[in-house]
């Protein structure tokens, strides 16, 4: 039963973290782009928000790489504590 609770906690945390990171990255990417508003005024781009977005996406990629390491046994040697 303990194992199932561990899986539950890990699954909820990791899925929430990766989902939130991606959504946060997407929010910053969209908000960081310059646009023309409905009234014709120009909204400036926010480079800082775009950088935050790319950092979020990079973290998501890191999580995916870690998932690949978990899937491929030959890669387990890259992460000593997985053994």
């Amino acid at each position: 039963m303990t194992n199932f609770i561990v899986v539950l906690v890990c699954a909820v945390c990791v899925a929430s973290i990766i989902g939130s990171l991606y959504a946060f990255g997407l929010r910053n990417l969209i908000k960081g782009e310059g646009a023309v508003a409905a009234d014709g005024t120009h909204v400036d781009a926010h480079p800082a928000r775009r950088i935050v977005a790319y950092v979020c996406f990079a973290l998501c990629i890191l999580i995916v790489v870690f998932a690949l390491i978990l899937i491929v046994p030959q890669l387990h040697a890259l992460v000593p504590w997985l053994k």
Binding site: A11, V14, A15, S16, I18, S20, Y22, L26, I30, K31
Partner: peptide, 26 residues
Amino acid sequence: IIAGLAAWCAVKLMYLIVKGLDEKRV
């Protein structure tokens, strides 16, 4: 139940974060 709860939490948080954005872009 485990997977459902994980998906429910993730989707709730994602929609909270992208709230107010253009749905098509999201």
